[in-house]
């Protein structure tokens, strides 16, 4: 399953730089990122090519960070597909805690990353696959 690296970052100038600097130093390739803002702090979520190495590099610095299993789904970049995905999950009463997406190739491929409650994660994976989507395994995601 795909891994997402979540990092606790205070909301002040220069904090992101410290993190990117250290990831760069460890030759980590960032494939996607998003920030969840909570006012005085934010959570930086990263998809990187080597999640374990990235985690260790930041943990060594004393950062509060965590690796999480997420559902990374390949979604063809055409109208209606995201709706089809959310409908499949809704039909089975799967709640999405958090999600973000990025387009890989315009009008061709997009990726949707979803955080699902741990007990429902495997079931969600099956539902998504049954609905005709490709769930990306970690290597596939990182080598996109």
């Amino acid at each position: 399953m795909a891994k997402q690296l979540t990092i606790f970052v205070e909301n002040r100038a220069g904090r992101l730089k410290t993190i990117t600097q250290n990831l760069h130093r460890s030759n980590i390739d960032i494939r996607a990122f998003t920030i969840q803002d909570r006012g005085d702090y934010g959570l930086l979520r990263l998809i990187v090519d080597r999640p374990n190495d990235a985690y260790l590099a930041l943990a060594e610095l004393g950062c509060a960070c965590a690796l999480k299993d997420i559902l990374a789904i390949s979604v063809p970049d055409q109208p209606g597909n995201f709706h089809r995905l959310t409908s499949a999950l809704a039909e089975h009463n799967i709640n999405v805690i958090d999600a973000y997406g990025f387009v890989l190739q315009p009008h061709k491929t997009g990726v949707c990353c979803m955080e699902i409650d741990q007990p429902q994660l495997m079931k969600a994976q099956e539902i998504v696959a049954a609905a005709g989507f490709t769930v990306l395994q970690d290597e596939e995601l990182y080598s996109l």
């Binding site: 979540t6 959570l43 509060a64 960070c65």
Partner: peptide, 15 residues
Amino acid sequence: EIYPKLFLGDVAKLE
């Protein structure tokens, strides 16, 4: 300060 070893990357838990 957040204690790194017990950080789970979850906003709901932090709040």
